[in-house]
Design a binder for these strands. Structure first.
Lengths: 255, 255
DNA sequence: CGAAGCAATTAACCACGATCAAGTTAATTC
DNA sequence: GAATTAACTTGATCGTGGTTAATTGCTTCG
């Protein structure tokens, strides 16, 4: 189903040491720029970030590649520079449940790293992607002296918990239709411009099947509900693009 | 449905200052003993814990009382000293979904506290309970100078995330029957002695309806499945006590 | 002691959403 | 541009689990 499992990895450290001591500076500058994408690194100075260099490696991964499976040991976490990643459970019967779909700027795997347990989900690229892998060793060392850095990490974990709680809530007390509408509205909020009124369009970030699974629905059921919403005049489907003629009406259809 | 919402609270600080400077010492000793129940405080010395005193208040709450509703502002977190608490979502139609059932030694509300957002769940006592409320102010101050303390908090959050992921997994790819069996096995593990073989008995921590909701089932469905399992000879139900004649057979029935 | 209230069980019925099976686009590859 | 595969849609059918409602203990309380 997927390409063979051979990520083309190369550590930033290696790249730097190939050139020489002097050439380290621009490398650090790049690392600095890249890591700053994650909120937890934003408060750090370039000199502090430089200390991460030896623990960071860059990963370029084509679409469909599996970054890790459930059960694999975890020795760091990932930060997405570009592309798209899905996290998913896979049951013994082969069923798959997508837990999250992540984009550039987001990170994953921290929680597991802090627990010294193997991964509970698998991660797979949904598009050609480049990511950074930050090794747990360096990371832990850097945490020890820096409570502010710790605070950032805590903030990140708390936010993730919050999101997951939202998922649990919608899985357990919202219908499929409600979950889809909620998804569209949220997607519009994050992608679209502020305070959109009236007509807006959303491009789905990946295949409908994957999004369906993310919402705990089968592809078929997802398709049917999209059809219902179309018939109700709430949306117009055009391939991967969803037009919403009147977003406030869609919002209103939730209650 | 419930008693009026008037928790009988009293700050440990107030209690201490009623007596006098000298009487503060034993109070701190008690606080020390109580807080140490939570893993995040275990690494702290009594002198450090003493600094929390002004931010901690003790809450005695009768069964059925609501500690907070969704939407209430959060200015600290709770540690259960005795009793039992449920966390639950409530939908606009009045449906309730129990997210977790917590016992003495466990804490809740940290994640929300770190995010400066209102509660997303409500908390209600399932039995007469006593808890400590630790104010966010003191807590944050104490974190600033103590990376090890931060590490403990991170560990706690990571663990909670892990648990929640387990819930999401079971909600989305296990059947009701599987979830119940899984629950019984986990309950046996935490309550029962190590490596039990053969016949064991479990006393359910609270009403079947509440546990059903925790497992994303209705009370009726829960009852039916318990019946099925009984007919299959896998369990024997005796009120709130579940006897398991052969626990390895129950385990085996999962695949 | 009986009334009231709550927890639990049981049964009949129903619906949401899954499964299975074709069929249709749409995107790749040769 | 035909061939192949993946993504999506549509329809028929089925089943898990929800809904409703009646019944039976089991407390609690007057």
């Amino acid at each position: 189903m997927n390409q063979p499992d051979t990520p083309c990895q190369e550590t930033l450290h290696t790249t730097a040491s190939c050139t020489d001591g002097v050439a380290l500076a621009p490398e650090v500058g790049r690392l600095c720029r890249l890591l700053r994408q994650a909120s937890m690194f934003q408060s750090l100075g370039c000199d502090e970030i430089a200390r991460f260099a030896r623990g960071v490696r860059e990963i370029k991964s084509p679409k469909g590649e599996i970054l890790f499976h459930r059960g694999d040991p975890c020795n760091g976490f990932h930060l997405i520079l570009s592309g798209q990643i899905k996290l998913a459970f896979t049951s013994s019967e082969g069923n798959e449940k997508v837990v999250d779909i992540l984009r550039a700027g987001q990170s994953f795997g921290e929680a597991v790293m802090f627990m010294d347990k193997p991964y509970v989900v698998m991660a797979q690229t949904l598009a050609d992607s480049t990511l950074l892998h930050i090794g747990k060793q360096v990371f832990f060392e850097e945490m020890n002296g820096d409570p502010l850095f710790c605070r950032k990490i805590i903030a990140g974990l708390a936010q993730r918990l919050h999101r997951l709680m939202g998922d649990v809530e919608s899985y357990s007390l919202r219908s499929g239709r409600e979950r889809i509408i909620g998804y569209l509205l949220r997607e519009e909020e994050t992608i679209g411009e502020a305070a959109s009124v009236g007509r807006v369009s959303i491009r789905l970030p990946t295949s409908k099947g994957t999004i369906a699974s993310r919402l705990n629905l089968t592809q078929e059921h997802f398709s049917r509900i999209l059809n219902e919403l179309t018939n109700a005049g709430l949306i117009e489907v055009e391939g991967r693009t969803i037009h919403i003629p009147d977003i406030s009406r869609l919002r209103g259809s939730l209650d």
